[in-house]
Design a protein around this nucleic acid. Structure first.
Lengths: 340, 340
DNA sequence: TTGAAAGCGATACCAT
DNA sequence: ATGGTATCGCTTTCAA
């Protein structure tokens, strides 16, 4: 039986220790362990070094490496509290994988209490090779400036609006509202309600979706849009539903399928028929939409695959001087089911 | 109008630059910027230094600091692909906040392709002050050994089982199944079905919940448990429902509310009455459970608050020699609604 | 094929 | 009240 593993060790082995154990210099250790091109080191030495490293349980010190080489190898992801969840979850681990396949270390830095320049300062301390902000409105022009000033070469903002000075992956949420409202209008609904989540951290998504619905009405030349604030909360729903009926709403676009589910539930409980009296469209094609009756008509979003995002980052890290560019990263598509 | 922010700068300002600009030494800069106790520096100098730092857009270099001081200030969170989502989401950002309030930098390192010692090596490269693995079975005894060997003083595993050598926050999921099944048995159901998600990454949660149900049956002295594998997928549900009826199931524990929702839906569509013919209990008290009709009876979990976890980590970081201890971190509570 | 040595940026002890 | 300086662990010329 092996002895119990040591508790934390006072002085972890360094490359010098490995060098000593293998009877070579630190330089050689570095060459071997990093597989430096050129095959400058003999096969025998290589094995001796590797064996010594294994024996000692040597793990290179990322900070030291970063300090010396000038590259941390880190891609910093930032996200606001709200984002973490649902679609984001999957996207994050895919991204992580994809970046790791390209030799980068993805690290998620959650919501900071600070924003703008102050947040930028926090991020910059790690000297990442790139910063990718995911729907994080903490990233503004000042933050970008701070990052650049601190030598961070690549800043990519993924969100509804490009940020000055940074590359952008634009999520044009406005399409979603446009798509949903167009469908409602096309099926004869005029008086439209649009649910806007009370949760203010969702505003960045909600406002554009609302704006898209308004654009659809303008484009259609007839109809109205009434904004309806609603909390994702069973208590708030019944009174909302009554008010909705009173307002004479004929078609409802509910921000996403979760809000749509809550809304439909409340509407049904009030005696309204869906879709006969009020047609409802959700968004994001969540599972819940297929479980409810009537099944939710929804707007599905196709995102740019994580691998492509990772490749874009990789390319930019390789050419940090590239002037900021914008790419569209999503496309909305209506999925008609039963609720509208 | 200000000039456009510079694109990435070749040589970011260092503390030497600040020192030069302020006409002091690097040592003084360090004292001022870190608010080193003792008030050893005059007020005038302090302001000059701070002003210079601001002007230059100076941001300290975390790697350099870590290298010199021996503390990275980083608490590394690790999580498997699946975890990221739902409850975890909130927990993560709360933890991040709580740790940040205590002066640590929380960083999430997503799922690695590797596990065990290899994963440990990856984590150890950053020389975090602590590693907190969240439901991540990549953390095993070997990984802990690697981390210790590399000088990482604190390793805390949050999950169903303690890991040898590491501190543990035990999530006893077994309680959930026990609690659910006990309720079903108490209401006269004998022939119990337990849904186990087909998604293998959920196994770590699912198996204990199943085991808990089995224990309840043994404790009750009567009844049977039939394991039912089900994918979270509308297609798979109908045939499952028929088979469930054929098996004569009277009470169903459905892993969580999402699976319960899917199951109830399929059962109702098959003509089964819930709860009259089959009683259903979910878990996790998700929103969807309150939206469905009948409303789902569920098992709610109370987790240890993020702040307490953060405080525990903080304490351990301050006293890395503390021998590994285990804490229970959740308590299950039945919430009776309409489905059982 | 290998080694010596110069830093990367910041901290903290020891002088002054 | 401030400055000089050794040092953290590693990479990378330049010599040998």
């Amino acid at each position: 039986m092996a002895p119990p593993p040591p508790r934390a060790v006072r002085t972890p082995p360094t490359s010098s220790d490995v060098a000593r154990a293998a009877g070579v210099s630190r330089a050689t250790v570095s060459y071997v362990l990093n597989n430096t091109k050129g095959g400058r080191v003999s096969e025998g030495t290589r094995t001796r070094v590797r064996e010594a490293a294994r024996q000692l349980g040597y793990v290179p010190h990322a900070s030291a490496r970063a300090l010396r080489s000038g590259r941390s190898g880190i891609v910093l992801l930032t996200a606001p509290a709200v984002t973490v969840g649902q679609l984001f979850a999957r996207a994050f681990s895919e991204l992580q994988q994809a970046l790791s396949d390209l030799g980068h270390t993805a690290v998620l830095y959650g919501p900071t209490r600070t924003r703008g320049a102050a947040a930028g300062r926090h991020w910059a301390e790690l000297r990442p090779d790139a910063v990718l902000s995911l729907m994080d409105d903490s990233l503004d022009e000042d933050a970008v400036a701070v990052l650049h000033q601190a030598g961070v070469g690549v800043v990519l903002g993924l969100g509804p609006e490009p940020v000055a000075g940074a590359h952008a992956l634009v999520t044009d949420e406005e399409q979603v509202g446009f798509c949903a409202a167009s469908h409602l209008l096309a099926t004869g609904r005029r008086n439209l309600g649009v649910i806007v989540p009370a949760d203010s951290s969702l505003r960045g998504f909600a406002e554009p979706r609302l704006a898209g619905a308004e654009r659809a009405v303008r484009a259609h030349g007839a109809g109205t849009v009434v904004r309806q604030d609603l909390a994702l909360d069973e208590e708030a729903a019944p009174s909302w539903a009554r008010q909705c009926v009173a307002a004479g709403v004929e078609g409802l676009f509910a921000y996403n399928d979760e809000y749509a589910a809550l809304a439909v539930r409340a509407l049904l409980d009030t005696g309204v028929r869906v879709p006969e009296d009020i047609a409802v469209v959700g968004a994001d094609d969540l599972l819940i939409g297929r479980l409810l009756r009537p099944r939710l008509t929804t707007v599905r979003l196709d995102y740019m695959p994580s691998r492509e995002i990772a490749e874009l980052l990789d390319r930019l890290i390789g050419a940090p001087e590239t002037p900021p560019e914008s790419h569209d990263m999503l496309r909305a598509r209506l999925v008609v089911r039963e609720s509208a």
